[in-house]
Design a protein around this nucleic acid. Sequence first.
DNA 1: CGCCTGATTAGACCAGTCGTCTATAAGGGG
DNA 2: CCCCTTATAGACGACTGGTCTAATCAGGCG
Lengths: 214, 214
Amino acid sequence: MNMTPVTGDVRQRILNTGQVIIGGKGFSAVGLNEILKAAEVPKGSFYHYFSSKEAFGEALLEDYFSDYLAQTEERLTQPGASHAERLLSYWAHWRDTQHHCDPSGKCLAVKLAAEVSDLSERMRRVLQHGTERIIARLAQSIEAAAADGSLPQSVNIHGSALELATTLYQLWLGASLRAKITRDRVPLDAALKATYALLNLDPNLSLTQERTQS
Amino acid sequence: MNMTPVTGDVRQRILNTGQVIIGGKGFSAVGLNEILKAAEVPKGSFYHYFSSKEAFGEALLEDYFSDYLAQTEERLTQPGASHAERLLSYWAHWRDTQHHCDPSGKCLAVKLAAEVSDLSERMRRVLQHGTERIIARLAQSIEAAAADGSLPQSVNIHGSALELATTLYQLWLGASLRAKITRDRVPLDAALKATYALLNLDPNLSLTQERTQS
DNA sequence: CGCCTGATTAGACCAGTCGTCTATAAGGGG
DNA sequence: CCCCTTATAGACGACTGGTCTAATCAGGCG
């Protein structure tokens, strides 16, 4: 009766391998054949699950953001830490996952935004919605951090939490983009430092190194 | 005897039309045919001027950064303004040129960085060198602005001018990337505001609107 | 004028693109 | 047992991709 688990098996495998390959080479540069061969899925099946390459791209982005948001939610609610600490843990994790070249850890938003937003209106909208939700989630934590006192009150002078979250997210987007160019972590370290500055935090507040809760 | 102007005529035309088209659609998504037809250059000629599409991409980026740096140099040395004003004029100009969809005003660094840096090591290096030069030029102006007193002295607390320039450039890179997603100027306005904050400047210091020198 | 040399172009080439289409296989329900 | 929907399988079409060889052209010199 519930048919999605059955179809979802193959469909999800296409999405997963597609995410790795497209996350590495981009959208236009990758052909369906390459993905399908890697996923060991015949071509005929592809068009059973997706009506076109563009529709597949949409599903890919939706799937990606869905996972990413769940993962972020978990990180921003980990127990035994203040909201500010959780936020810093989020960005420290971003830095640690983006600087080395883990193929499956690539951020699709960074990789595909520029290429895809001029190519497909539908994919652009998925990107827009996804990034908006991430920023909104960050803003929520920023507000909570201001409320629980783990952020200096002077932060709110700069504007609303949503604005601050927007700025910080874009800062990290740009840092990740430049890290792709330089292939080192310098851009991300600069972003982390700027994050401390924009949040009016003491730069030596530790947590620059990611750590599990003790 | 000087043959480059003759060959350069066709070569440059390929580069110019290529910049517009690739700046709009990306690198992999555009075929040589499209560029050459638009430039009214026969296909066979292409490989007389460029040894491959990748080599063309390199030349394209070099040409772009060369123009961009010259334009930036001019803006950062315009007479009758303090160094801080010139810097703010630079970013205000960035905002004004990126938010609307002028096809030839597209920033190739934003458009191509993610796509190309994993695709071609040679193109990646051109991007790296180009962005490094821009950042270095910005750092030079930041230092000058600190020296002539048009920036608050408190700015230097955050670190060296090069670090600050790196952060600001990446901030704008990310803002432009997100502006491609949202198709409005909100991300760029946020970046301008954050720029004021990172430079410890009064947000109401005018110059948020671009203006010609009076 | 005739020839030669190098710059320029025309178009063939094949691998690869997305997407379509027919044919087969699997899995229940009646 | 048949039927019907869902899913798999991959050949095929029309087309475009980047690349390269072979022909053309321009023009200076003998």
